[in-house]
């Protein structure tokens, strides 16, 4: 799941003209560290929804890569 999320993140970063990353750090802030704005984050949520069938922003406001991963893993465990 981590590898797939990294791929999606890099697609969004690259399409937005931002630097891609080689690995994810759970403490990284999606906005402050990776530079994603609201539209980029919406783009990411749609790609995650298409890939995993999970609406990551359904309940919580997500700030970090770690929070994103934990929701995905939780949803994966419940699947």
């Amino acid at each position: 799941m981590e590898k797939e999320l990294l791929e999606l993140l890099n697609t969004v970063l690259s399409n937005a003209g931002l630097d891609t990353i080689s690995e994810m750090n759970k403490e990284q802030s999606l906005r402050d560290d990776l530079g994603l704005d609201s539209i980029n984050l919406a783009d990411l949520t749609v790609r995650i929804d298409d890939k995993f069938g999970i609406d990551v922003f359904e309940e919580d406001f997500i700030e970090t890569v770690g929070q994103l991963l934990s929701i995905l893993e939780k949803a994966g465990d419940n699947a």
């Binding site: 919406a42 749609v46 359904e58």
Partner: peptide
């Protein structure tokens, strides 16, 4: 495409 964060994401 309807999106909670920004209303719509342009596709």
């Amino acid at each position: 495409r309807k999106n909670k964060m920004i209303g719509n994401l342009l596709m």
